[in-house]
Design a protein around this nucleic acid. Structure first.
Length: 240
DNA sequence: GTCCAGGGCCTAC
DNA sequence: GTAGGCCATGGA
């Protein structure tokens, strides 16, 4: 078993299932199955509406605390601005005012309109293409959309469409470079490939792992150079 | 008051 | 090609 998978197991045991994108109800059982890693407790968005809400959330959460994004999503719901067509039609000031709590509201309002234009046709067809086409092709296409960078593209593929695209964020880089598994200045795609090749191709695991990394970082590894009793460092102790 | 959050784009060198 | 500035609210 790879160190990366060991760390996943340790984090899941320590923090439990994180349940990101809580759109549909999810089970709450625990334990390890015979694949050698714990099963994920995630359910997934299944309707076009739910998928688009995840897409909006992944745009709004850019460099922003999730609690602020939740308020913005609630406002968007109240103003019925949660479909591509309604966002496209909405006045810029109305839209930016609704997402004010998520910060960068002018910039994000523009980006939401661009993303809505991009997903309008896909949305009307229940995103068939995004659920079935080659994942690398889709990712490259997403990266051409203004406002969608590598992390957001992977978040959309993973959390909205349940495609196996590992999400790398600043925490991932920070935590795993500390224990020498990646380099601090390593390219995003290299880190992404490192995780994908070190883990079973299990989409639910990818979702859970990214969420666990964020949870772990929030609690223990924000700015301190060394994290006391860090489970990640324990797993890697022999290697350091 | 300061720091930072589930980043990405644009500009200058 | 890459470092630096910019976008901005809200909680700790």
């Amino acid at each position: 078993m790879s160190d990366v998978l060991k760390i996943y197991n340790v984090l899941l045991q320590k923090y439990g299932s994180q349940g990101w994108w809580p759109i549909v109800s999810r089970a709450n059982s625990e334990g390890f199955d015979n694949k050698g890693y714990a099963p994920s407790q995630y359910d997934h968005p299944s309707t076009a509406k739910e998928r688009f809400e995840v897409i909006i959330g992944s745009m709004l959460t850019q460099n922003t605390a999730w609690t602020n994004v939740e308020k913005a999503l609630e406002e968007l719901h109240q103003k019925n601005l949660i479909t591509p067509s309604s966002i496209i039609k909405a006045d810029h000031d109305v839209l930016s005012s609704a997402i004010r709590s998520a910060g960068y509201f002018n910039q994000k309002a523009k980006r939401l309109k661009i993303v809505s234009e991009y997903f309008r046709e896909e949305h009307s067809d229940d995103y068939k293409r995004f659920l079935t086409s080659d994942i690398h092709t889709l990712r490259s296409e997403l990266l051409t959309v203004n406002g969608i960078g590598p992390e957001t593209a992977d978040s959309i593929l993973l959390y909205a469409f349940h495609r196996a695209s590992f999400v790398v964020d600043a925490y991932t880089r920070r935590i795993f470079s500390r224990v020498g598994l990646v380099k601090k200045d390593q390219d995003y795609n290299q880190i992404k490939l490192f995780f994908e090749s070190s883990l079973p191709k299990d989409t639910s695991l990818f979702k859970e792992y990214h969420a666990l990394i964020v949870e772990h970082a929030k609690r223990h590894c924000k700015t301190k150079p060394v994290c006391e009793g860090c489970p990640v460092e324990k797993v890697c102790k022999k290697r350091i």
